[in-house]
Simulated assay, not measured.
Amino acid sequence: MSVGTIVAVCVGNGGVPKHPVAEAKVGPDGLEGDRHRYHLHGGRDRALCLLSVDEVRSLEADGVRVAGPGAFGENLLIDGLDFSALRAGDRLLVRADDTPIELELFDVREPCATLRRIDRRFPDLMLGRSGFMARVLGEGTLRAELAIERP
Rank of each mutant, 00 (worst) to 15 (best):
residue 1 M to D: 07
residue 1 M to L: 10
residue 4 G to N: 00
residue 4 G to T: 02
residue 5 T to L: 11
residue 6 I to T: 06
residue 9 V to M: 05
residue 12 G to E: 02
residue 14 G to A: 08
residue 15 G to C: 07
residue 18 K to R: 11
residue 19 H to E: 11
residue 20 P to W: 05
residue 20 P to S: 01
residue 23 E to D: 12
residue 24 A to H: 12
residue 24 A to M: 08
residue 31 L to G: 10
residue 31 L to H: 14
residue 37 R to W: 13
residue 48 L to A: 07
residue 48 L to N: 05
residue 48 L to I: 01
residue 55 E to Q: 14
residue 55 E to N: 10
residue 56 V to P: 01
residue 57 R to Y: 07
residue 57 R to C: 02
residue 60 E to G: 05
residue 61 A to Q: 09
residue 66 V to A: 05
residue 69 P to D: 00
residue 73 G to S: 07
residue 75 N to W: 05
residue 77 L to N: 01
residue 79 D to K: 02
residue 81 L to A: 04
residue 84 S to W: 05
residue 84 S to A: 07
residue 96 A to T: 02
residue 96 A to C: 06
residue 97 D to R: 13
residue 98 D to S: 08
residue 99 T to Y: 07
residue 104 E to W: 11
residue 104 E to M: 10
residue 107 D to H: 14
residue 107 D to T: 15
residue 111 P to K: 03
residue 115 L to F: 00
residue 116 R to H: 09
residue 117 R to G: 06
residue 125 L to T: 02
residue 127 L to H: 02
residue 130 S to G: 04
residue 135 R to W: 09
residue 136 V to K: 06
residue 136 V to F: 08
residue 137 L to M: 04
residue 137 L to D: 06
residue 139 E to L: 07
residue 141 T to W: 10
residue 144 A to V: 02
residue 145 E to C: 11
residue 146 L to Y: 07
